[in-house]
């Protein structure tokens, strides 16, 4: 009687090995490794300074890691080492196959151009040159993220925080990415607004079969969205596994502390 290997032999989308990010002598994250499969949502939880954001920045190719490898399965099926790709190819990947939803909409949106232009930009960036079609896609996506289509020509600076986050999501998803990074997507939002956003993200991820890496310090958000969790502290992954297992049966002292620190309502 032997343990069975993986149920399906579909290869992972993202393979991370020994990833270390350093800022001079200071370590952002150390020796992080994991695999991410298509359609899977990985939550990265931990408190401020735990290395979540360093990890996210390296994963999304924003900063070059000091050590380790990030390999990604391109649409043609080949596994490419992220930092072996040319800068052009890497940036192309970020504009098309990947999306990044920032905590602060200011980092992810152009606040001085209209909502429609914000959504359309990624299409134009990959060569769309038909105004009518770009606008059509923008309208379609505003609808999907529950933004009133009448607001298409308004600037996002006039939007509420929740709308800005939903606009960021539309802006990212318009190119049909396969992998989306989200950094505290519900941070700073009112609870009722959070719920709506979480529900939207859940639905989109499931409907589109997206893979996502979501960084959050909110364990409730992690439970709702993530299939698997990695708990980080001091730049290292202290525990990882199935989301509900990590939250309901935490093994590491730090995870136990985190879980027991949640306020009950």
């Amino acid at each position: 009687m032997s343990a069975l290997p993986l149920l399906d032999e579909e290869p992972p989308l993202l393979v991370v090995e020994g990833l270390t990010v350093a800022y001079g002598a200071r370590v952002g994250c150390r020796d992080v490794g994991f695999e991410l499969w298509p359609g899977e949502v990985l939550g990265i939880v931990g408190e401020s300074g735990s290395g979540k954001t360093s990890l996210l920045n390296a994963l999304s190719a924003k900063i070059e890691p000091a050590a380790g490898r990030i390999r990604y399965r391109l649409r043609d099926g080949t596994m490419a080492d992220l930092f072996d790709l040319s800068e052009a190819a890497r940036r192309q990947l970020l504009r098309t196959d990947w999306g990044v939803v920032h905590q602060n909409p200011r980092d992810g949106l152009r606040l001085t151009v209209s909502a429609g232009a914000n959504v359309g930009e990624r299409l134009m960036a990959i060569g769309a040159r038909h105004y009518g079609e770009i606008r059509g896609s923008a309208l379609d996506w505003l609808g999907k993220v529950e933004i009133d289509r009448d607001r298409i020509d308004d600037r996002p600076s006039s939007f509420s925080g929740g709308m800005q986050q939903r606009l960021q999501i539309a802006r990212n998803l318009v190119t049909n990415p396969r992998l989306v990074f989200m950094d505290e997507p519900t941070g700073g939002l009112d609870v009722s607004v959070q719920a709506r956003l979480l529900d939207l993200i859940r639905g989109l991820v499931a409907d589109l079969g997206l893979s996502a890496i979501i960084v959050t310090h909110d364990l409730a958000v992690a439970r709702l969205l993530a299939h698997r969790l990695m708990v980080m502290r001091g730049g290292e992954v202290v525990e990882s596994g199935l989301t509900d297992q990590v939250l309901d049966d935490p093994q590491h002292p730090y995870t136990q502390l985190l879980v027991s620190s949640i306020l009950q309502v």
Binding site: R110, V113, M124
Partner: peptide, 21 residues
């Protein structure tokens, strides 16, 4: 870098705005 990589797509954002408004 944008010039080096011919990343000019976003330039059309301005024209999009013109037409939209």
């Amino acid at each position: 870098t944008m010039h080096a990589l011919s990343e000019y797509g976003a330039m059309h954002v301005r024209f999009y705005e013109d037409i939209a408004h």
